[in-house]
């Protein structure tokens, strides 16, 4: 058994060294408590719902979320709005459909099965409207940035006056956590920018936390099931390992060699 322990330790340490080498140059991100971290991590529903509000009222003017559908908002493990609420949300957007029997495209209110309406028709249009910078699609953003949720949270709160030695062009802003410290998005959040429908006070930090939680969910919509299944699988594997261990001992007791 000592040998096995050694092997396991070796495997884990090799992998940790590798991980370390990937994350060697991470910056110190702002710290906040995430409910979705850890073995039993779950999303905070209220935070997700507020996060969706921040998305629609603040981000959606420039950032698309092309892989999300309205139905996702009602699905288990997400913001879990009621189906009725989501129908109302969806119906407040217009989507292009068609052609109809006259061969014409037409606009209609969105349905549950429709994808989130995009702010721009294509990447070029979004660039043209934003001074040449493409506001990235946010569906998987939380997985597409090193540091994930911590990075996004820090970035949203990381706007600051530039140090004296950095000169910024028009439409470029200083951000402590952005790669190269220059960002083309102006500080998106300010206190009381929006009014939360659940009455929570809309501080910068609160909004940053809510939208980050929402983005984490949109990147990993099955995180809760994953954590739950993972726990069961690992408990099962441990039990089976113990059973197989005793079976093995029993079988090998017929020869005098130790296992």
């Amino acid at each position: 058994m000592k040998k096995i322990a050694n092997i396991l330790i070796l495997i884990i340490s090799i992998l940790l060294i590798q991980n370390h080498s990937f994350s060697a140059e991470t910056h110190k991100f702002l710290k906040t408590e995430w409910t979705f971290k850890g073995l039993f991590g779950k999303y905070d529903r209220a935070s997700l719902q507020r996060g969706y509000q921040v998305y629609t009222e603040v981000c959606a003017a420039c950032h698309s979320m092309q892989y999300l559908s309205y139905r996702n908002l009602a699905e288990p493990g997400g913001p879990e709005f009621s189906e009725q609420e989501v129908k109302v949300i969806a119906a407040s957007f217009e989507v292009l459909d068609g052609p109809n029997s006259d061969g014409e495209m037409f606009m209609r209110p969105a349905k549950l099965s429709d994808k989130f309406v995009m702010p721009y028709d294509n990447v070029e249009a979004s660039k043209a409207a934003n001074g040449g910078a493409y506001p990235p699609d946010m569906s998987v953003l939380a997985k597409a940035r090193k540091g994930g949720a911590d990075y996004i949270y820090s970035l949203l709160l990381g706007y600051d006056d530039p140090p004296a030695d950095i000169k910024l062009d028009d439409g470029v802003y200083y951000n402590k956590y952005m790669y190269g410290n220059k960002i083309k998005m102006s500080a998106p959040l300010s206190d009381d920018l929006i009014e939360y429908s659940d009455g929570t006070k809309a501080t910068k930090e609160q909004m940053a936390k809510d939208i980050t939680t929402f983005l984490m969910w949109s990147a990993e919509p099955h995180l809760e099931t994953r954590h739950k299944t993972g726990f069961r699988v690992i408990v099962y594997l441990i039990i089976l390992s113990i059973l197989v261990y005793f079976t093995m001992k029993k079988i090998w007791s017929r020869v005098e060699t130790k296992v």
């Binding site: 396991l8 495997i11 993972g230 690992i234 089976l240 390992s241 197989v244 090998w252």
Partner: peptide, 24 residues
Amino acid sequence: PYIVVKDAFALLLFLIVFAFFVFY
């Protein structure tokens, strides 16, 4: 059954590491 059961035991330990990566 000697090597089969021993391999199975080692495989299960390996699977625990594997599962940890997949799920967490």
